[in-house]
Design a protein around this nucleic acid. Structure first.
Lengths: 142, 142
DNA sequence: ATATCTGCAAATTTTTTGCAAAAAG
DNA sequence: CTTTTTGCAAAAAATTTGCAGATAT
């Protein structure tokens, strides 16, 4: 998808969320879009800082909070004591290599059956779940 | 189980992990043992601070890190931007109510099959996984 | 006796907040 | 023109670290 088209999409995305289109927001969106890995606030700040129109760290945090509240991005915790963020898309989970830190995506967790069971047994309504796998990636097996 | 017996168990647990038995460590272990909910470092500190032999915040953090490294406790992230800890026991997961904050335990996630599939498909060796459910508990349904 | 553990104080990391100026629609 | 967003500076929250003295074995 061309950059022009992308920008149009971002504008629409923001408009649908009743948010104004600003350079900082576009920068955050496009950086998240370029990266398949979930990103920390700091790495987003670092990247946006190197742009034509750098943004303040507080602005980045506020943007991420707003996007998270609107459901535009997901907020993850991968055992690092800080948040990571990724664009909301197909539901998927992550394989985090405890040796090299590589993060892979994985889909089809098929946990919806279990969620229904929870609803019945515990009278708990599941809205979302977090599921992350920690271990060793193919490169770090030996 | 009587308190005497518990103390003996804690001593053994620590000895097996090549750790010295200290008042602060015993206090942390017994507070974790009294609580079924996973606890934050701060709440553990607060509790131990009210004891006959209060411990420094840094000591609490160091104890928790050590226990985590030894596998004595689990370190969880429940979407709060901080860690929580619980004694290692039967594998289980949590239902976190997004309305009142109540945390319930749940077992039998039956995800081992999926983990094997991951091993085959992605050549990733799963060592552990995190699985938490967020939603509404029975008291907060309406 | 010796290695481990703790307290204290200071620092680091991650995230949040108040307020006035700037920008978007 | 009005509401939202941003920058700046400061603060808060969570966690870590260095080092010297205290404690456990």
């Amino acid at each position: 998808m061309g950059n022009k088209q992308l920008m149009k999409n971002y504008r629409l995305l923001l408009e649908n969320a009743s948010l104004k289109t600003t350079p900082a927001r576009l920068a955050v969106l496009s950086f998240l879009n370029e990266n398949s890995d979930p990103l920390s606030a700091e790495s987003i700040f670092d990247h946006v800082a190197g742009e034509h129109s750098p943004a303040d760290r507080a602005t980045i945090y506020r943007i991420l909070e707003t996007f998270f509240q609107k459901g535009i991005i997901k907020r993850l915790e991968l055992g690092e004591g800080k948040y990571r963020y990724e664009l909301t898309g197909e539901e998927h989970h992550h394989l985090i290599c405890e040796s090299c830190g590589k993060i892979e995506d994985i889909s089809d967790c098929n946990i919806s059956e279990f969620e229904k069971e929870i609803g019945r047994k515990k009278k708990f309504t599941v809205r979302r779940h977090s599921l992350e796998f920690f271990g060793l990636c193919s490169d770090c097996q030996n």
